[in-house]
Design a protein around this nucleic acid. Sequence first.
DNA 1: GGTAACCTGGAT
DNA 2: ATCCAGGTTACC
Length: 282
Amino acid sequence: MPELPEVENVRLGLTNLIVGKTVQKVTTDWEKILIGGVLHFNQQLKGATITRIDRRGKYLLIRFDNGLTLVSHLRMEGKYQLALRQDDPAPRFWHVGIAFTDGSQLRYLDMRKFGRMQLVQTGTEEIVVPGLAKMGPEPTPATFDAEAFYQTIHKRKAPIKSVILDQSVVAGVGNIYADESLWLSRLHPAQPASTITKKEARLLHDNIIAELQKAIRLGGTSVHSFVDATGQRGAMQDQLHVYDREGTPCDRCKTTIVKIKVGQRGTHFCPHCQKLRKRKVR
DNA sequence: GGTAACCTGGAT
DNA sequence: ATCCAGGTTACC
């Protein structure tokens, strides 16, 4: 489900809903989601109060006043909801409940059960959690350097789309924003990354930053089922140029958008605006 | 690197 | 029945 903009909107919603609440009990019907087990979560979290919620890439970092951080990854379908009372009707696909001392309960929903939660000592998450240890720069002008980006992709012969989906290259890009950024940059998704010029790399870098910022501002993309922690859908789906638009005319040239597979992922692009080059040009 | 695996539901 | 899905990771 969520890429960086969606996770950021979940973070904003959750911040308003649960900061300041104290944990009473954690429950689950699918223990695999809770790394270390539900007993461990109860032992560590009972009586702890949420102080703030951060985000790194697509990971949510829920901070507690006892020095622990709950690292949460929503993967494809994870969602959070707050029930004001614990005995409010249980939604479908609800797999983890975090009950608070004020009687409310945070519920984690995940149709495919792909999401994971892990408790770590605050400050050690970027060492202990493999996905965070490898995480590349956040896609902001202050943290994501165009020259460094070029130097990285320059060495990779994989399709450029696969490379920008690699979270160690840049944090937070997923299938939708990869396709969109490549369309904006007029790059074919299957173009070997090593053949991308420095100029093209800078353009792609700028478009990734701009596209993710825009998506955050619009509340994320809801093409399948995304809603934030307050149940709000995003508005970014109305701004997409290629994702989920196969068979419709390109917004630039009216050529029909096509869908192919790149690195096992459905990939949308304009065959006229985004041509595959055999070799590096300058 | 490519590929299967983790899961379930909805579309074709 | 078969294929597909905003993701990541463990294997040839």
